[in-house]
């Protein structure tokens, strides 16, 4: 049958509006000046339009980051929605940049925009990708590190969605611990 004009053309709204950020390391500038808001979107269609036209994670230069955060939350510890929170951190081996990074980052984005964590999705602030020579990192940030039921539920679902082996352990670190660490090791508050 013929569709009435406009029927079927509505975009699919997301639960949240999301902001995509890009960080490019320039040591001559302060950290915050290297962080750029790329765009915001709030429909499934606009997400793919953007994702399909930006560089894949594996093609970014070392020192660059992507971050996807709910509109109104800046991708930094200092934001009021982040400062009591923490992150589920997935650290990748160097060789996984070519084999796995793009798939894992896309899966992370789909978890966020699809609200994969059921009632605990409200605890999610965003996700960060760090492209680094020594090994890339992906993390989901949540807003309250002390909220054990939410944090552990999110961790279990996230690990399953990434398709990680049960033998692989991922850890949740409070931003407060990461910010005050005296070496490169931050203790895990939770693991799944």
């Amino acid at each position: 049958r013929k569709l009435p004009l406009g029927e079927g053309l509505e975009k699919h709204p997301l639960e949240n509006r999301w902001a995509l950020w890009f960080f490019k390391n320039d040591r001559n500038r302060v950290w915050q000046d290297n962080l750029h808001l790329v765009t915001k979107f709030e429909t499934v269609e606009d997400f793919w339009a953007i994702h399909s036209h930006i560089k894949l994670a594996s093609k970014l230069s070392s020192g660059c980051d992507y971050a996807l955060f709910k509109d109104g939350i800046e991708p930094m510890w200092e934001d009021s929605r982040n400062k009591h929170g923490g992150r589920w951190l997935v650290s990748l081996a160097k060789q996984q940049r070519q084999s796995n990074l793009d798939r894992l980052w896309l899966e992370t984005l789909l978890c966020l925009i699809g609200e994969a964590f059921e009632e605990y999705s409200e605890e999610v602030c965003g996700a960060v990708l760090n492209v680094r020579t020594k090994g890339d990192k992906i993390a989901i940030w949540t807003s309250e590190a002390e909220n054990q039921p939410a944090v552990t539920f999110i961790g279990r679902v996230y690990k399953e969605r990434l398709g990680l082996s049960p033998k692989v352990i991922i850890g949740y670190q409070a931003h407060a611990d990461t910010a005050t660490k005296s070496n490169s090791f931050t203790k895990n508050k939770f693991v799944v």
Partner: peptide, 20 residues
């Protein structure tokens, strides 16, 4: 009602927009 989408639904839109 919360707008939740599973991965298969979301992935279904991928190649439409990759070609635009």
């Amino acid at each position: 009602e919360k707008k939740r989408y599973d991965r298969e639904f979301l992935l279904g839109f991928q190649f439409i927009f990759a070609s635009m």
